[in-house]
Simulated scan of single mutants.
Amino acid sequence: MLNTLLSLITVFTLGSADTKDVKVTESTIKWEATKVVGGGHEGTVILKEADLKLKGSELKGGSFVVDMTTINSTDLEGEWKDKLDGHLKSDDFFSVEKNPTAKFVITKVKKTGNGSYEVTGDITIKGKTETISFPATLTESGDKVTADATITLDRSKFDVRYGSSSFFDDLGDKAISDEFKLIVSLVASK
């Protein structure tokens, strides 16, 4: 009975939205992190799976799962790249052995203009879930639709402590900003 009720609520909320599988090989997620006093790093992480829910040409929902074992810095090479990539995967940062995926699920979409939206959803990193909101755009080109967003997250809410002045005093110029960005571009067929 409860499952039937939830299904009806979902149908009512989404209307006749179609679920489109995202082409993970054509989609990208880039990350950017900075130090409190200058400098920073950037890189990528690979999508494991994703979908967009569309009603006509309007965004109504969606989700994505990230393979955290693929976290990769793109601004370094050689030994320094290997060290940073290994550190990001360690318990100091994302504990990828214990938490191999991160997930985002849209819970609410508000249209703000032609192809523009305010998206709200639940993101889970390291087993901790937070509700976030951010602007997103949806564009159509040929037989494809692309959803783009820049998402700013506070890593301290996900117990990512290394170099965080939210957890440690006297870090000085070694402090790493708690905020980091995910630049997301999800590509699906219409």
Score class of each variant (00 low, 15 high):
V105P: 02
D91S: 12
P135R: 04
S165N: 15
V160S: 03
K157Q: 08
D122S: 14
E79V: 06
D75C: 10
P100G: 11
I176A: 06
Y162C: 03
S166R: 12
L138M: 03
E140W: 15
N99G: 08
D143V: 05
K144N: 15
E140P: 14
L171C: 02
Y162S: 07
E97C: 07
A175N: 12
G142D: 09
T120A: 15
I125Y: 05
T112N: 13
V119D: 01
L138Y: 01
V109D: 00
W80V: 03
L76R: 11
L153C: 04
S156R: 05
D75H: 13
G127K: 05
Y117C: 03
S165H: 12
I71G: 03
F168D: 10
G86D: 09
S95Y: 07
I132Y: 06
I123Q: 01
E130R: 09
H87K: 02
F158P: 07
A149H: 05
R161T: 08
D159H: 12
I151L: 12
T139P: 11
D170L: 10
T70Q: 10
L138N: 02
K98S: 13
V119P: 06
D154Y: 07
E77V: 10
D159C: 06
G121W: 01
N72H: 14
F93T: 00
G127S: 08
R155V: 12
K81D: 05
L76T: 02
S156W: 11
L84N: 04
S133N: 12
S90R: 01
E97I: 03
G127E: 06
I123L: 08
H87C: 00
N72T: 05
S90W: 02
K144M: 14
S141M: 14
H87Y: 05
D122E: 15
L84W: 01
E77I: 06
